[in-house]
């Protein structure tokens, strides 16, 4: 971004500055940080900020992806290309491995999102990661709206929302005891619109499914779900080809597409600015289970 001569930052410059400060604090105060990277737009923006924070040095962190086994192939390709381009070390925690050897069982509803928690926590323990960067934003969801930037997890990976540390000024406290770790959310204060405006301003590349394309989908529970190997059409459902894009990218079986003709960043920014439905409300089946679905998952150690 170019700087304006006035001595007041635009909202994007302010957010970028805050995020870079947070990222550098983690590099300075933790032994073994790791970045959660899925190839989704928020983790791509987070990684972009990490690169900027340490320029011209290399990113001093490893990258971890919790792979549900039901990811969009184009997103996995994007993940691998990015990791290679930046020379990062990628660790993959595979939900499929856990299902194959019986440590986890497939759920009746077929969604694998809640199954990510155990492989995530195991990977954190195995690699002794003490700080784990997540791309979560407070505007996404009401439990996330309550979370600190530095969010302490106990030895079971649990979040205790009723007993969070005070977080004062920009003095982040990353102290923890052995076995505990800290989840760090450098994008806490960004909104979906900020993310897209930043992607436009910084010309950040994303997996192609964030832009309008033709895809075979079925309508289920008011959402458009891609028809694919992990998410076949059910009996009685009609498969149609529609012009869609994704607002979030996750497990294919529970992430919905939205009707859209937005094929450029500018189109998407206009679309997001005018939308009347939240990102998760439009696209995430798993958050519709209950009023507190996200809080319950987070307490157990979810992202």
């Amino acid at each position: 971004m170019t700087l304006t001569p006035s001595r007041e930052l635009t909202q994007l410059q302010w957010l970028e500055s805050e995020s870079i400060h947070i990222i550098r604090e983690v590099a300075a105060e933790f032994e073994r940080p790791v970045i959660l990277f899925s190839g989704g737009k928020d983790s791509v923006v987070m990684l972009h900020l990490v690169v900027k924070a340490f320029w011209p040095a290399k990113v001093p962190f490893a990258v971890l992806h919790v792979d549900t086994g039901h990811n969009f192939p184009e997103v996995l390709r994007f993940r691998d290309d990015t990791v290679e381009r930046l020379g990062l070390r990628l660790e993959v925690a595979s939900v499929q491995d856990y299902i194959d050897d019986g440590r986890l069982r497939e759920r009746a509803d077929g969604t694998r999102n809640p199954l990510q928690t155990q492989p995530l926590l195991d990977a954190i323990a195995e690699h002794r990661f003490d700080a784990v960067f997540g791309g979560g934003r407070r505007d996404e969801e009401k439990a996330r709206a309550k979370e600190r930037v530095f969010s302490l997890r106990d030895e079971f990976g649990q979040w205790d929302p009723r007993n969070q540390r005070p977080e004062l000024w920009n003095l982040y406290n990353g102290r923890h005891t052995p076995g505990q770790h800290v989840r760090v959310f450098p994008l806490s204060n960004w909104t979906e619109l900020d993310i897209w405006q930043y992607i436009g301003a910084e010309k950040i590349e994303l997996p192609p499914l964030y832009y309008a394309h033709d895809r075979e989908v079925v309508e289920r529970d008011g959402m458009l779900l891609a028809v694919g190997p992990y998410s076949p059409a059910r009996e009685g459902e009609t498969v149609t080809t529609r012009r869609v894009r994704y607002r979030t990218v996750g497990d294919m079986s529970c992430t919905g597409a939205v009707d859209s003709s937005a094929s450029t960043v500018e189109d998407v920014i206009a679309e997001v600015a005018a939308t009347r439905i939240t990102e998760r409300g439009a696209t995430r089946a798993d958050d519709r289970i209950s009023e507190a679905a996200m809080e319950d998952r987070k307490k157990e150690g979810y992202f």
Partner: peptide, 22 residues
């Protein structure tokens, strides 16, 4: 109810921790 996002907040009808909104 737009901001009291935690289960215990909704149960008790009070705000326990800061909710950030944009």
């Amino acid at each position: 109810l737009l901001t009291d996002g935690l289960r215990s907040e909704r149960e008790q009808g009070i705000t326990i921790d800061v909710a950030y909104r944009y």
